[in-house]
Amino acid sequence: MSMSQARPRGGAAQILAFGLRKRLDGTEALSGVDLALEGGVVTVLGPNGAGKTTLLRCLATVLAIDDGSLLIDGLDPGHESDRIEIRRRLGYLPQDVGLAESVRVFDVVEYVAVLKDIGRGSADPARVRRHAVHDVLDQVGLADRVADKTGELSGGMKRRVGLAQALLGSPSLLLLDEPAAGLDPDERLRLRSIIAERRQRATVIQSSHLTDEAATSDRVLVLVDGRVVFVGPPAALAATAEGRTWVQHETPGPVRASWLQADGSYRCLGTPPAGAQLVAPTIEDGYLFLRSPAPTH
């Protein structure tokens, strides 16, 4: 793929992936992932080790795929010039933000602004960078902490510094690996607002363990053992457990998943027994139903 086939900048990024495979430490982290995404917010759900981080790293072009094809805005990350162009359009928050404790918040974000080439071609790049840094720190609510060292910040604030650097340069593809981890409820609401504000002009892909985050996204992608087992709107995810979610008071037999609720009843997923008290499934029910294997009798 050459640069001439690239989609122009502006607007949400388009991701087309077919049969993505990636092996790590001898195991297949991604086993033939297919994706077609453009615009909106996508939440990737999956248990630990399902391949969420590997998928985001491949999309962020920091990991090369072993097999399959991946095009981002028509650009192939396997080619150096295409990869650089993809990275110009990208905002990436890895699982581990990696902040040196003795560095000031402003300096951390400005360093990434330098790496992102913010201000390139302007008469005063340093001034453009300063403005860009203040803008993103404003957006994440850290405008008054610019001179603080990152070691003085709470875990949630550090996460927001990471988010700020990802927002630099108004990326058309925003990849966020567990952005809500460590955030308090107020911070999570702010995160949702920031993401919602971008859904019109960017493709936002976030991984999460929280089905709450999935409920506010346009689409949910469920990964299990490196495979995509579901892609669709949150309501459709809940619907996968329709007629397969029930509540009972006695200890359940073999089911896909069950858990004790606060009122002493068991919420069960699977094939309901005759006369079971079916209930309306939630997104969490749908997710747990998909990721849990059918019981063996």
């Binding site: 962020a60 072009t61 920091v62 650089i84 162009e85 990275r87 110009r88 990208l90 990436y92 890895p94 581990d96 933000v97 990696g98 902040l99 040196a100 951390v108 360093y111 990434v112 330098v114 790496l115 992102k116 080439d117 990471g162 650097q165 990849l175």
Partner: peptide, 18 residues
Amino acid sequence: ADPAHEVGLATPMSGLRL
């Protein structure tokens, strides 16, 4: 060595130049 290594990789800055 570099806490921001992964963040840096996802930017257009050439790794060799860095």
